[in-house]
Amino acid sequence: MMRVKKLIPLTIVIITILSLPGQVPGQACCTSGTPILGTLELPAGVAGSFQTALTYQFNTLDDVINESTPLEESLRRRFTHSLVLESNYGLSDSWAVSGLLSFIRQGRHNNTLTSGKEVLKVTGLGDAVVLVKYSPLKATLFSQRNLSVGAGPKIPLGDFRRRNKEGILLPYEMQPGTGAWDLILWSNFYQGFRPVPLSIYLTTAYRLTGRNSLGYQFGRELTLNSGMTYDSSFPVDFSLAFKYRAVAPDSRNGQAIANTGGKWLNLKPAFYMHPVEKFTLKLSGQLPLYREVNGIQLTTSYRISVTGLVNFRINSQE
């Protein structure tokens, strides 16, 4: 037990250190993409348990920021609709495997002087993730503490060579996929305080990005989600979290691209409902508290998401 306790800060420190993005001065236009890391939330679970979460997320990029200063700008706007399916299966009480599939629809609106609003829309299967998770510390009747760590590849299922009808390659950040294999490191820590119906959690994910065959490499990315959940006696539970995201600049053939990457701190309120047994409906939002981007970028104004989570056991004796 003592050894396990030591593992908690160690794991968090290792992932955090590994994931600090290099601060290379950095262009293109924005830092966005399929919200894969922000969606990885399912803990390892127990043997035979199966969880599936389907998340719809709407992300709108309406704000232009110069480093940390907002600029007056209404020339363009971007949005992303994504559907992310994450499933988690408990191989044993300590080991689990997770898979994530994404489907994305993103668009860009430009207010032009001649042709009015010009719209570019791209729809397609995004990249996928497979994670193997291990729980060195499980919550029990006597301990309300749970730690899961995981690692696995992000698989480049999404198309990254999408062209318009004239044969011109669409911008990298508008492609459904990245075209690169990445390594994902992940951890989730939970602490309950029963009988007080309060718990805290920290989910950390780091994406060590690879380079695609066009020589483009998205910036390494770290996300930290830290918050508390209040399990009320009402039909609706509530959580409030802070989400920190740091992304290194993208690069092409090893050279940093300006105006990509940055740091974002967001507030994430969420409501949970349990309309039927073993089914949870989660509504959440994300509002920016602090944004510091490299150069000038069009960046996220807000996100909203809806998640349906089903939790059941396979080969259950019940």
């Binding site: 236009c29 363009r76 430009n110 032009t112």
Partner: peptide
């Protein structure tokens, strides 16, 4: 496509 789009 450089990124910002037409008149971006």
């Amino acid at each position: 496509s450089g990124g910002p789009g037409k008149d971006g």
